[in-house]
Design a protein around this nucleic acid. Structure first.
Lengths: 228, 228
DNA sequence: ATAAATAGACCGACGGTCGGTTTGTTTCAA
DNA sequence: TTGAAACAAACCGACCGTCGGTCTATTTAT
């Protein structure tokens, strides 16, 4: 093979790019190190020069995703014009917009992420995402608690629990997608819609907010997303 | 090897026994099929006669654990002398008793379950446990909602969310165990205690119950458990 | 000169397959 | 009633292909 030398940063990012694509396309366990180096046009030696193991590559993929996520969320959490509830709602609104914009890829991602051969992938991404999100949410809760807009005893614990709840929505979203693929669009939309509302209610009650304060979803969102 | 023939049920249960022990002892990924058949004194052929893959064996381990769990929980949920809140509290009380009784094994289990090479094991057990628990909890919420002891819109969704929350406690329990092993018993106990109380508060608020209704923990529990 | 980066042949372990053997049960003619 | 032939299920273990990972040699940049 032709020997090409690139800056370490470029090389390792190329490897992570390929890995991310292949992991989501064929699953983590179904993707071999040989697949990755073939796509990245790199030798085995080079690969193991950058990553001590296949596992380390997975770690890198998850970490980079979390970092990108953090960069997107950071500004919102630092916006001084919003109080805690405003931030939460802005978060959900942004999440909805993102979901609609990237519906096709997202559907693919969800399907991949919940396949049994991808538990490792799923788990690592969840861990990395939690690690960067908990402090942000905790800080938000702390501020909200201080200025009286919400009531959150033990912000750290509350943040983790709120984020943990988020997973249940992800699970249902996956179920809804499957149901829609099976032809039952109406049922899928109704289910997703109901669960998202329940999720909103759970947050409101947990943070002792008045009913209707949290807008996780908006009318027609579930259906629009599923149809997209 | 001497050829011994046993009834299919006995044989497959022996294999599941060995697998369960080895998976928790050395981790799922670190346990090879050869390890299992050596311990179970069975040939490769016999193994693949019963399980189509190593993955299927994992599935069987998880399913059996969930079934046993169900058998333990079932009576409590069918106890007519308890209302929904009483059942919840009985559930937590039973869980505490069990935790104290089996503290050593449980600590081992927790440590095993959260190791990176055990994500598959963890995930499968969680899935199997959820599958059997959600209907039970949902039914309980439905009854509680009907007789006015609590307020749970969409029992199915609420059940899944409540059970999802439980995972955050498991995570913290693991963190507390690590902290205690690192020598900081006081810190670990305080953390665990605080989080369990927050968990109780989360449930109360979510189900619109009066403060102090749910007793997830009791004074000194965290410390007693960690010291056991 | 030397250290980092790259190449790719190579290795051992692993999950899984396969052809064949043993054991127990059913069938049926004598 | 018996017993042998036929069959199916349980079991054995040598073997295979693949995969993650190692190692030595070579190239490149400083």
């Amino acid at each position: 093979m032709v020997r090409t030398k690139k800056s370490p940063e470029v090389r390792s990012n190329e490897l992570i790019d390929c890995a991310e694509r292949l992991f989501f396309q064929h699953g983590y366990e179904n993707t071999t190190v040989n697949d990755v180096i073939r796509e990245a046009k790199v030798s085995k030696g080079a690969f193991y020069h950058y990553f001590v193991s296949k596992e380390a590559l997975l770690e890198a993929v998850a970490t980079r995703m979390a970092e990108r996520n953090l960069k997107e969320l950071q500004p919102l959490f630092e916006d001084p014009s919003l109080d805690a509830v405003g931030q939460l709602n802005a978060l959900f609104a942004g999440s909805r917009r993102l979901k609609l914009d990237m519906a096709p890829q997202l559907k693919n991602t969800f399907n991949a992420l919940f396949k049994p051969e991808n538990v490792a992938l799923y788990h690592r991404i969840d861990e990395a995402l939690m690690a960067v999100s908990v402090p942000l949410v905790a800080e938000m809760l702390r501020r909200g608690h201080a200025d009286g807009t919400l009531d959150a005893p033990d912000p750290e614990a509350s943040a983790l629990m709120l984020l943990q709840l988020r997973l249940s929505v992800a699970k249902v979203m996956h179920k809804a997608l499957q149901r829609q693929e099976a032809g039952d669009l109406d049922g899928a939309a109704a289910m997703l819609d109901g669960w998202m509302r329940t999720y909103g209610t759970a947050i409101e009650r947990f943070l002792k907010l008045p009913d209707g304060t949290i807008e996780v979803t908006e009318p027609g969102f579930a259906r629009t997303f599923l149809e997209a």
